[in-house]
Design a protein around this nucleic acid. Sequence first.
DNA 1: CTCCATTTGTGCGTATGTATT
DNA 2: GAATACATACGCACAAATGGA
Lengths: 235, 235
Amino acid sequence: MKKQPVWKEIAERITRDIAKGHHKAGEKLPTEAAYAARFGVNRHTVRHAISALVEEGLIYTRRGAGAFVASDPVRYSVGKRVRFHQSVAEAGHQGSKEFLSMTTRPADAEEARALGKRKGIQVHVVEGLARVDETPVAHFISVFPAARFPDLLAHLKTSNSITAAFAASGVQDYIRQATRLAAVNANATSATLLNLQAGAALLRSTNVDVDMDGQPVEYGRTWFSGNHIELTIDG
Amino acid sequence: MKKQPVWKEIAERITRDIAKGHHKAGEKLPTEAAYAARFGVNRHTVRHAISALVEEGLIYTRRGAGAFVASDPVRYSVGKRVRFHQSVAEAGHQGSKEFLSMTTRPADAEEARALGKRKGIQVHVVEGLARVDETPVAHFISVFPAARFPDLLAHLKTSNSITAAFAASGVQDYIRQATRLAAVNANATSATLLNLQAGAALLRSTNVDVDMDGQPVEYGRTWFSGNHIELTIDG
DNA sequence: CTCCATTTGTGCGTATGTATT
DNA sequence: GAATACATACGCACAAATGGA
């Protein structure tokens, strides 16, 4: 076993506890002091671990209240049988898309910039997984301005289609601005979701979609598994 | 002015310093100790600020070495006619290309298929390195049918330009047929050439260029450093 | 090559501020 | 208001990686 920092060990321990269902979505986690006592470490060390998990998006904290499990922990139990899939035809394969979580929260600096808004505005965040022939091939996170689309998440839950949800919100058509591509190493979250080793090469696609008036309506990032996907650009 | 944490104040101060050009891309920032002394705070407070900037992607740190300004990824447009130099020039960077080796040998199966020829025909193979602002960002291997371009390598040696060498061989214009993109982990060769760790994420671009009659004239593979290059697809 | 000063990373201890319950 | 719990900030010590002598 490779040696690793205490804080990381604790972060993984908490992650496992959540994955095992010891703490459900929205539930309060033990206090920092309690964790410090349980693991026999300083409270700062626990804070470092918690901070990393907050950054990952697994949990969130509220000063004076506590730390809470952020999203549906189904994300961390990949490998189990998929229950919901809606099939779409893609390149002759059987494709499916699954939404893993839908939340509404303040936009971070990058998201706000991409949408042409100020940091801190409320945004809907939809995270999901795309499969081809049951193999997970892409992990996506889409961000939408909440003020413009108050009922987007409700529509998404019923339709499972972003295009349909947009239509129900009054956006009849939208186009993709330039798409940016980069290669990145998989972080723990993406690696788990895509059934890859941490550090595997991923193709990251970043895009902003705008409506016919040029207003940004979606900021999307997709991580494609390098092993399973090859993008072709016609030209 | 709303009161805000000291670490955030420092993070914004460093951000402004970088924005103002006091620290250029790739340059080393002052040490944590130096910042602590300058701002009259504890080193942990500086670390908190730096940690936030690393998370933002503005800077990166190397244990034992220091903190450095992250360079903006160079955006390389993919399309019919765009050339590497043109792209980096538009992005305001200085591009250079270096040929590492030129050989003539029989084509392997993959190369022959891409060029629409039989395996074993003679091909010129050119391997090289592309730099932006002196930083190696891409490693490329191009394959050309030798029968069609007997003097290509000689022309390349004098002109250092594939376009010019083609022109000297009677190909006035050529276009990119298709580009395929994938993410792969760096092998030892690419990692060394690009100054990366083995396993770093690379964006591999595979392309076939054809002349105006549709005849394949070049089969190229390029490995872009994921850290330094971002491909942009227009439209 | 080894040695060593430098620099970031980890961890502990303590104190105080601020928001929630 | 009181108790609780996360947030900020200081200080000290040592580990680990870097880079130059």
